[in-house]
Computed example of a mutant assay.
Amino acid sequence: MKNLKYLILVLLAYSNASLAQLKAISYKDGNQVLNGFEISPPEKSTQKPGILILPAWMGVDKASKDIAASLADLGYYAFIADIYGEGNYPKDNAEAAQKSSYYKTNYKEYQKRISLALDQLIRAGASPDNIVVIGYCFGGSGALEAARGHLNVKGVVSFHGGLARDPGRTIEPIAAKVLVCHGADDPYESKEEIAAFQQEMRDTKADWQMIYYANAVHGFTNPEYGNDNSKGAAYNEKAAKRSFEHLKLFLNEVLGK
């Protein structure tokens, strides 16, 4: 028992040390100041791949910082994007819904903010031609927009993200590989939206995967959502662990690690 407690303390200390390596980075979109975070792997090299992280609708949060630290521990450069910018961070869910909806509708602006964050990831040291974009909830929608916008990324991963797109948009081939990790009971994505997304993937000739997790609703990777599925968004430990393993498999395949 003492050995187990010691091991837990060591793991917690290691995790906290990784988080401490996160560095705040200010950059700009015109006059708009953006505030992201970067973290480097233990062994730095310009040949190492990079992961761009797009946070959920409240913006940069603990969950995005935790995943950045975990990815750095695995040997990746990571950068957490700031989509909203200084002075525009939502104060509550109502504001987050309004602000995130703006970027979903004005997807070109969303793609531009993602592109600017990619530049920061490369400046941090990541190989410019070996990058994957991952996103959570609103950020998951952004990951798909990175693929739709033909940004220079090898793959994109959406965790419980929005799948919808304006049906009037032109269908164009998607080169980036696509992984969607989706709660089987997510109440925020209709059967029609899921079917339309899957048809989009077929029409664009994408190399895509969509994995469903049983008993999981929206936000299943975030412990801060609690575990009450009836609220529509809730943490599911099993789904969170499985989806992280699926992420690692995807990264190994796409980035050649």
Score class of each variant (00 low, 15 high):
Tyr77Cys: 01
Ala81His: 02
His150Phe: 15
Ser127Glu: 10
Asp73Ala: 09
Ile114Phe: 00
Ile67Cys: 08
Asp61Ala: 14
Val156Asn: 03
Ile53Glu: 04
Gly142Ser: 15
Leu144His: 00
Pro128Asn: 04
Phe138Pro: 03
Tyr89Pro: 03
Tyr136Gly: 05
Arg123Ala: 10
Gly59Leu: 06
Ser127Arg: 07
Ala96Val: 10
Gly75Ala: 08
Ser101Val: 12
Asp92Gln: 02
Ile53Asp: 06
Arg148Ile: 06
Ser70Trp: 15
Ser64Asp: 06
Pro49Asn: 04
Ala97Cys: 12
Tyr110Glu: 13
Lys65Thr: 11
Gly149Arg: 07
Gln111Asp: 14
Val153Ile: 07
Lys99Val: 06
Val133Lys: 03
Gly140Tyr: 00
Thr46Met: 09
Ala68Ser: 08
Thr46Asn: 13
Asn130Met: 05
Arg113Val: 04
Cys137Trp: 00
Ser40Arg: 08
Ala78Ile: 07
Leu52Trp: 00
Ser100Lys: 01
Gln47Leu: 15
Ile134Tyr: 00
Val132Gln: 00
Tyr102Ser: 12
Ala78Gln: 01
Gly142Asn: 04
Gly85His: 04
Tyr76Ser: 00
Tyr84Gln: 08
Gly139Met: 04
Asp66Ala: 11
Asp73Cys: 11
Leu121Tyr: 06
Thr105Ala: 07
Phe138Ser: 06
Asn93Tyr: 09
Ala146Cys: 09
Lys99Ser: 14
Glu145Ala: 14
Gly59Ser: 14
Lys44Gly: 11
Lys44Phe: 06
Asp73Tyr: 06
Ser158Cys: 08
Lys44Gln: 06
Gly140Thr: 11
Cys137Ser: 10
Lys112His: 15
Ala143Ile: 05
Lys104Phe: 15
Ser64Leu: 05
Ser70Gly: 12
Pro128Arg: 05
Tyr107Gln: 11
Tyr107Phe: 10
Ala69Ser: 14
Gly85Ile: 07
Gly155Asp: 05
Leu144Thr: 08
Val156Phe: 02
Thr105Pro: 05
Pro41Asn: 13
Pro90Gly: 04
Lys91Phe: 02
Tyr107Cys: 07
Lys62Cys: 10
Lys99His: 09
Tyr136Lys: 08
Asn106Val: 12
Pro128Trp: 01
Lys112Gly: 02
His150Trp: 03
Ala126Cys: 05
Ser127Gln: 14
Tyr103Val: 15
Gly149Gln: 13
Ser141Gln: 15
Val153Asp: 00
Asn88Arg: 08
Leu144Trp: 00
Gln120Asp: 08
Glu86Thr: 06
Ala63Asn: 08
Gly75Phe: 01
Asp61Ser: 13
Tyr89Met: 10
Lys112Ile: 13
Ser40Val: 13
Gln120Glu: 05
Gln111Asn: 12
Leu52Ser: 03
Ser100Leu: 07
Gly135Leu: 02
Pro42Leu: 14
Tyr110Ser: 15
Val153His: 02
Ser100Thr: 09
Lys108Gln: 12
Tyr77Lys: 00
Ala97Arg: 10
Ala126Thr: 02
Leu121Ser: 02
Glu109Cys: 11
Ile80Gly: 04
Leu118Pro: 01
Asp82Phe: 06
Cys137Met: 11
Ala147Leu: 07
Lys62Val: 13
Lys104Ile: 10
Glu145Met: 13
Ile122Tyr: 02
Ala81Thr: 10
Gly75Ser: 04
Val157Asp: 02
Leu144Lys: 03
Leu116Asn: 01
Ala94Met: 06
Ser45Thr: 15
Gln120Thr: 06
Leu74Asp: 14
Gly85Phe: 05
Glu109Asn: 14
Gly87Trp: 07
Val156Tyr: 02
Ala94Gly: 09
Glu43Lys: 05
Ala72Leu: 03
Leu144Met: 09
Lys99Ile: 09
